[in-house]
């Protein structure tokens, strides 16, 4: 059994928090794909029905906001790991 000093333990915790913050941001992939999908469909429907542009844009924004929440959770957790655990 190896005993670590407190400095080494702090360094390991900091490094693990930084790596964890980076990994947490992988969740951005899902939000990006989802938002891009919604935007693509919105473009298709505007091309088909240009007069409904305003409604389509607002619906798209709300849908994207809901799809974004997983990405936002990941982002908030990454920030927690980066700024609060290190301090």
């Amino acid at each position: 059994m190896i005993e670590f000093g407190s400095e080494v333990v702090d360094t390991i915790i900091t490094a693990a928090a930084l790596i964890g913050g980076g990994i947490a941001l992988i969740a951005g992939i899902g939000a990006g794909i989802g938002q891009g999908f919604a935007a693509g469909k919105a473009v298709e429907s505007v091309a088909r029905q240009p007069e409904a542009r305003g409604n389509i844009t607002i619906t798209m924004l709300i849908g994207q906001a809901v799809a974004e929440s997983t990405g936002i959770y990941a982002f908030v957790f990454a920030l927690l790991l980066l700024f609060f655990i290190i301090l």
């Binding site: 974004e68 929440s69 936002i72 959770y73 908030v76 920030l79």
Partner: peptide, 16 residues
């Protein structure tokens, strides 16, 4: 929770 975290995350992320 998701409602408030969405606004906070967007604005705070932008300022960061």
């Amino acid at each position: 929770i998701s409602h408030s975290f969405r606004l906070f995350g967007n604005v705070f992320g932008g300022s960061v």
